[in-house]
Design a protein around this nucleic acid. Structure first.
Lengths: 168, 168
DNA sequence: TAGAATTAGTTACGCGCATAATATTATGTG
DNA sequence: CACATAATATTATGCGCGTAACTAATTCTA
């Protein structure tokens, strides 16, 4: 691949990161949230209470980041932490009523943001987008499939969309 | 759009940002660079010397960020700043020889990263990728010309709200 | 031409996320 | 059982990028 195309891709990913995050920030601000916190609320809303290590895995960020995120969300009353009965090292994180209510607002805003993001793209592209982005993420992910330079030829995601996403 | 799909898109963008940046960080570390600095070097390598305001525009980040980036890259000897002759407020930023040499290394690494990122994707998708990502970026970009399509039927932010309406 | 408005750059501060080091608890093994 | 190892969570620290407030220089305008 020549530099022009490589740069077009890398730069586009970089700019999309900055702008998508900035847009999320301005939409989250009225709810009293900073970008990153919404992902934690949505994860708890989706899969229920879990310990911080599971949150770290689900959100794709490191345990110290989860410590800070949970601390702030607990301070603002949207989540609660209680010791895990089976493991005294772990603490279970769960939504409060306020947090569940806030998660609902975040979900609505999340749809607005996604629609805004893909405005003007062909429907087929929009349908494939999650699969494409997820495949790209897996390609550069060193967290779970540690391949620093040895790119294994078998870990690709089918480009034709994710499985059973044909709802409604 | 239903929440499932919206979340798939937003979450995928978020995760791709984290992972792509992290991968870039590990590849840039041997060169003594932190992610973000490579974009500045590449921009100067592409379009030659320019003032910081132009860098801010080209990189898509705010002037204070450029101040910090240029200060650190100047400290490590890869760029140089000199006063602009025609405008005594501005300072012209340019690559040093060391910076030009480093930019060459960054360009080669940039290609490796891009190829790694799109591994396994169909060639057609790879060819369309820059356009898709750029379109998405423009859709959520509030820095310049907020929405290129103009048609946004009451998407965001309650109309009567006092929500931080940014200068336009 | 004097004063207002704009622009370039900086400083101060906050947040998210990362790594490194540490304390505490679980779990494997001799 | 004792002890080495792994796992959970935390603190400390650093970087990138953001906003707000500020200085200094330029440009518009009455």
């Amino acid at each position: 691949m020549d530099f022009e195309h490589a740069d077009a891709i890398n730069q586009a990913v970089r700019l999309l990161s900055l702008r998508h995050r900035a847009r999320a920030a301005t939409m989250l601000a009225p709810l009293g949230l900073h970008p990153g916190q919404e992902a934690l609320l949505l994860e708890l809303d989706r899969n229920g209470a879990m310990i911080q290590a599971q949150l770290s895995e689900a959100l794709g960020c490191e345990p110290p980041s989860v410590t800070l995120m949970t601390r702030k969300l607990e301070a603002s009353g949207h989540i609660r932490r209680r010791p895990a009965p089976s493991d005294r090292r772990a603490s279970i994180v769960e939504l409060t009523d306020s947090g569940r209510e806030l998660a609902g607002q975040v979900k609505r805003m999340w749809c607005v943001l996604a629609e805004e993001t893909v405005t003007g793209l062909p429907a087929g592209t929009v349908a494939e987008l999650p699969g494409i982005l997820t495949a790209m993420t897996a390609n550069v992910d060193t967290r779970r499939s540690g391949d620093p330079h040895g790119r294994r030829p078998g870990l690709v995601a089918e480009p034709g969309g994710t499985t059973t996403d044909r709802a409604r």
